[in-house]
Simulated assay, not measured.
Amino acid sequence: MAAAALSGAHEDQDSAARSLRASDATPGDMLAAAGYLFVSPENLGTISGEMKEFFDRCYYPLLGRIEGRGYASAIAAGNAGQGAEAQIDRIATGWRLRRVAPSLIVRTGADTPVAILAPKLVQRNDLQRCRDLGRSVAMGLHLGIF
């Protein structure tokens, strides 16, 4: 999903969009960005541990320093997604970020132990929705809309 969103962001040749794993992202990376697209799986009703660790590590160093920047989120979930969405939104509210697009929640339907443990295949139309979101966020930033 993140790769598809980045692909969409790069449809505009002037896009400076880049993708970082949550474990590699630093407060400096966040300060250098004009906006953010947070992409995470939902695990047990919340964001992934790696994403949570990123927010824990970066929250206080960025507090009061990125206010007003735009953000959006894309979440891969079994049947829900709202738990991860709410968690991201609470953190973004603390940073005083501005949501610039509705959350994109891709539901895989995995709700049995076998399905949950199996590799997930994101459907073509959902990947297109990710590309569209990446393109929209990048274009909005490029045009100064957000």
Rank of each mutant, 00 (worst) to 15 (best):
A3N: 13
S7A: 15
G8K: 08
D12I: 13
S19G: 11
S19Q: 15
A22Q: 07
S23E: 15
A25Y: 09
P27M: 14
A32L: 12
A34N: 07
A34T: 11
G35W: 07
G35H: 02
Y36V: 05
F38S: 00
F38D: 01
P41I: 11
N43Y: 15
L44G: 06
G45Q: 13
G45W: 13
I47H: 09
S48A: 14
S48F: 07
K52F: 12
K52N: 12
E53T: 14
E53R: 15
R57G: 08
Y60W: 09
L62G: 03
L63E: 09
G64W: 02
G64V: 11
R65V: 05
I66Y: 00
E67P: 01
G68R: 08
R69G: 01
Y71Q: 06
A72Y: 00
I75H: 12
A77W: 10
A77C: 06
G78V: 08
N79Y: 10
A80L: 13
G81N: 04
G81D: 03
Q82E: 15
G83I: 09
A84I: 10
E85N: 04
I88W: 06
D89M: 09
I91K: 02
T93W: 07
T93A: 12
W95C: 01
L104S: 04
I105V: 11
T108P: 04
G109P: 00
G109L: 08
T112C: 05
T112F: 07
P113M: 10
P113I: 10
A115E: 10
I116H: 04
L117M: 15
K120W: 06
L121R: 12
L121H: 03
D126K: 00
L127I: 08
R129M: 09
V137W: 03
V137Y: 02
A138N: 05
G140F: 01
H142Q: 15
I145D: 12
F146C: 07
